[in-house]
Amino acid sequence: MNLKLDKQTFWLVGGVLALLVVSSLIGWVLSLRTAGDQGRATIQNLNARIRAWWMMVAIFGLAMATGGIGSVVLFGLTSFMALREFITLTPTRYGDHRSLFWVFFIILPLQYYLIAIKWYGLFSIMIPVYAFLLLPIRSAAAGDCEKFLERTAKIQWALMICVYCISYVPALLSLDIPGYAGQNGKLMFYFVLVAQISDVFQYVWGKILGRHKIAPTVSPNKTWEGFIGGIACATLIGAGLWWATPFTPWQSAGMSLAITFMGFGGGLVMSAIKRDRGVKDYGNLIQGHGGVMDRIDSLCFAAPVFFHLTRFFFT
């Protein structure tokens, strides 16, 4: 998997770095000017998020620079950490121990291996078909029937969200798009950028204008103002980046809209799960962001849809 580092890639990376520099400056100015405990706490959280963004961009950039394999490894590790957070919060029983061992050490690496060798026919069905059928067999053989369906469903869900869906991000590198050979790295960058910047704008618009809550019982931070502002900004930015993708500006706007909608939905669903389990964040790995799962919930839901839309219409 050799990816060309062309001029457009440098524009994309340079744009993101410029954005980070600007946000760091804004964060610094705000930290000097804000008074009051609540305001200061918000700004502290904002600055922690910006610092974490530097880190995440650096890691992602490094993975991109190593070509395809670095990205596969990076998202494989991301899956591993997300899965660990997810299963930690999900009650399973002793009878699931061996199944969980398979999940972590056989199914997860196998999925990313299939992505690395670009075997679409198998990576797209391995978890929904084979893992789906084999794991409950292993759990049933362990002989514990208590809450069996519930436990089985939870493990399958964890696999689908944390492994299957996330693996669609590096799977973008395997798409054979006519006239775009060797440039798929930009497509992956575009996808992650639109999904994440939509989260950022939803957060920012929500903090500035947010009044009307969308689903107060699920997530008090999600407001109509944040939703509309975030999706509009991210779609505009996505449309403006059409030159780095195989899409026309209008197509790019449509794709960005799909990414941001799915991303928003992902955040909502993962919030509902957290709320049900009585926690605020999935973990505490990333300063200001909570856990890995808190950061990638939007990617999980958007990646498979973006992949299949692109595959259907452009290959």
Partner: peptide, 18 residues
């Protein structure tokens, strides 16, 4: 907390939860 799910009694392979 939770270490018993990582390596329960009678198992020798750990599942890396938190």
């Amino acid at each position: 907390d939770n270490l018993n799910r990582i390596l329960p009694k009678g198992e020798f392979l750990p599942v890396p939860l938190l």
